[in-house]
């Protein structure tokens, strides 16, 4: 499907919301140009005719998946988490305020 530069700019704005990555408004035009080029390269496989029967391959690991039993570990000490103690207050790690 052919998309115009304006379409791409709209798509980027939509993708930015989905991916929670705000694109720099000053660079949106050059980003649109790059994305257009890259998707054109991707489109090479869209045109490829692959039989329905072919199963997708998501990993090349064919060994036995090693899922270990849950094991209870002693929790990491506060001193190990914050060796200098700079972020400690009343024995708790203080995290920076966000909002």
């Amino acid at each position: 499907m052919w998309l115009s530069r304006v379409d791409w700019e709209k798509i980027i704005k939509h993708l930015s919301i989905l991916a929670l990555v705000e694109a720099d408004t000053a660079r949106i035009e050059s980003l649109a140009r790059d994305l257009e080029k890259i998707v054109e390269m991707f489109n090479k496989i869209v045109e490829l005719n692959i039989p329905e029967i072919v199963e997708p391959l998501y990993t090349t690991f064919f060994g036995e998946i090693n899922l270990e039993e849950d094991v209870e570990w002693e929790s990491m000490g506060i001193r190990e988490l914050d060796p200098t103690g700079e972020r400690l207050e009343d024995g708790y790690v203080k995290s920076p305020k966000t909002l």
């Binding site: 991916a19 694109a23 994305l35 496989i45 869209v46 490829l48 391959l57 998501y58």
Partner: peptide
């Protein structure tokens, strides 16, 4: 952004799924 694009509804089959089949 491009990763999100190829995984979007309506495009997933044409891009990501197709790529996984080419990989096979």
């Amino acid at each position: 952004l491009l990763g999100t694009y190829v995984l979007s509804e309506g495009l997933y089959e044409g891009y990501y799924l197709k790529a996984a089949k080419v990989r096979r």
